[in-house]
């Protein structure tokens, strides 16, 4: 395993990116990792992109930003945002875990610019990295109770990647520290659902 392990989680304001990163960080800390999470949210609730950099190491606490093209894993809560960070952080060995459902920018809604075809985004990612897990996670989130469940599904997926040092059970162990008791069960289920998506994924 690389040291540090560099993970980018990217998405749009309101998708629960910062919370997912924090939960991953807590679980990693419990596994003995030196953990650094850089959060970029700014005006995120107002429609902008949100990106977290998570760096896990057995030796050092690294800086809050991943150096260029050094992400081992890119988690896209939204496909366009995964594509956006690709040139700056991706490399030939990057793994992608991407939710397939777009959230359209306002300039796309207005017809000023086109949203790229998600199938094409998937193809670009396949050509750019090691492997792409393309997940219909929003649909499953809706079935679980609402779009807000998406972040835990994607976190469950990330932690089910082969060789990833933090497991779904490690995540589930810290949920009780973050969510009120009534929400723990539902979010635990989401982590499992995400894990199943990876286990059953067909390229």
């Amino acid at each position: 395993m690389m040291d540090p392990i560099n993970i980018v989680i990217t998405g749009v304001g309101g998708q629960g990116n910062v919370l997912a990163s924090q939960i991953l960080g807590r679980a990693a800390l419990q596994q003995g990792f030196k953990t650094t999470i850089g959060e970029t949210f700014g005006l995120s609730q107002r429609g902008g992109g949100v990106m977290s950099h998570i760096r896990l190491s057995e030796k050092n606490n690294y800086g809050p930003l991943i150096p260029p093209n050094m992400a081992h894993i890119i988690v896209g809560l939204e496909p366009l945002e995964a594509l956006r960070v690709l040139p700056e952080y991706g490399n030939e060995d990057t793994l992608f875990v991407v939710n397939a459902r777009p959230i359209y920018p306002l300039n796309v809604i207005a017809g000023d610019v086109k949203y790229p075809d998600p199938k094409w985004i998937r193809q670009i990612l396949i050509e750019s990295g090691k492997r792409v897990f393309w997940l219909e996670a929003t649909q499953l989130a809706l079935e679980l109770g609402g779009p807000i469940m998406l972040n835990m599904i994607m976190l469950g997926a990330l932690c089910a990647l082969p060789g990833f040092p933090v497991g779904g059970n490690d995540i589930k162990n810290v949920l009780k520290d973050v969510f009120s008791q009534s929400k723990v069960k539902q979010n635990s289920k989401a982590v499992d659902v995400g894990g199943d998506l990876i286990q059953t994924h067909e390229d």
């Binding site: 749009v12 309101g14 107002r46 594509l83 040139p87 920018p105 306002l106 790229p116 750019s128």
Partner: peptide, 18 residues
């Protein structure tokens, strides 16, 4: 290589009220 593949296909996200 990536820049050539993507071109200008990533529209920016303009700020918007929720």
């Amino acid at each position: 290589k990536i820049a050539a593949l993507i071109g200008d296909a990533t529209p920016p996200r303009e700020f918007g009220f929720c």
